[in-house]
């Protein structure tokens, strides 16, 4: 589904990713862990096409197409979803408006019929219900005045509505209380654990991985994947810390 080959990038002239390679197949769940400042969010943003995240070398192929050849909104229409470490607030634009325009833009791009108001509300209700988010919250402006945990939950409602092929979730577990973590974990499984989909979870903690069990765990340090393994690698990291595991 996604093949990243020796990717290098720069932000404002500063090299962050330094030859990162990673392959994610349909049906797989990958987790990336790594120290603060390693480049995990940079990887997510670069794949999403954030302005100023300049690709200086390497390739990324998504579903057979050159990802870096597409505009950010085209990547989303092709099936890529980015869960933000810090979801953005948009005053004056309601979640429902935001999501309906997003979904219909995607559908137009794919040559599908747009959803009517009624069809969209039905879909939004279903996905909000799945994540235990009150529909009233979706009438409020995007992320404005939401608590940290509410923002993460709202992002998962967005993912449910947009129904991507590949979700890159950047610390979706941060800010969630114990119960919310469980609900969000179950939500990710319900939406994304399918043979034709894949997930890349960026996280610092094993907690989320208890609910969303990864097939592969990678350690990203200093702009590269320095170690890969199965689910046991996350446990090992939690026990021993990055220094030990990366050196070994």
């Amino acid at each position: 589904m996604l093949t990243i080959d020796t990717l290098t990038n720069e932000i404002d002239g500063k090299a962050i990713l330094k030859g990162l390679s990673l392959t994610i197949n349909a049906g797989e769940i990958h987790a990336i862990m790594g120290p603060n400042g390693a480049g995990k969010s940079t990887l997510a943003y670069t794949l999403g096409g954030r302005p100023n995240y300049e690709v200086t070398g390497g390739t990324a192929t998504f579903e057979g197409a050159d990802l870096f050849d597409m505009e950010p909104h085209e990547r989303a229409a092709a099936g890529l979803f980015l869960g933000f470490q810090y979801p953005v607030e948009i005053p004056g634009v309601s979640n429902l408006q935001f999501l309906r325009e997003s979904l219909n833009s995607q559908r137009r791009a794919r040559g599908q019929k747009e959803l009517s108001g009624g069809e969209f509300i039905k879909l939004a209700k279903e996905k909000a219900g799945l994540l235990g988010l009150d529909m009233e919250m979706l009438k409020r402006p995007v992320n404005v005045g939401f608590s940290g945990g509410e923002k993460k939950r709202a992002e998962m409602v967005q993912m449910g509505i947009l129904d991507p092929k590949l979700a890159i979730l950047d610390e979706t577990d941060s800010g969630l209380d114990i119960d919310a973590l469980k609900i969000v974990g179950a939500g990710i499984n319900a939406i994304m654990r399918k043979p034709d989909k894949a997930v890349l979870l960026i996280t610092h903690y094993q907690r989320l991985l208890d609910y969303v069990k990864p097939d592969f765990v990678h350690v990203l340090a200093a702009g590269r994947i320095v170690k890969s393994g199965g689910p046991e690698l996350a446990l090992e990291l939690e026990r021993e810390g990055y220094a030990e595991v990366v050196a070994a």
Partner: peptide, 19 residues
């Protein structure tokens, strides 16, 4: 905000008009 909207699939003209 524009990048957030694009990351959800909104085309640039729709995103700008909404803002």
């Amino acid at each position: 905000a524009l990048f957030y909207m694009a990351s959800r699939g909104m085309d640039p003209a729709t995103a700008k008009t909404l803002l």
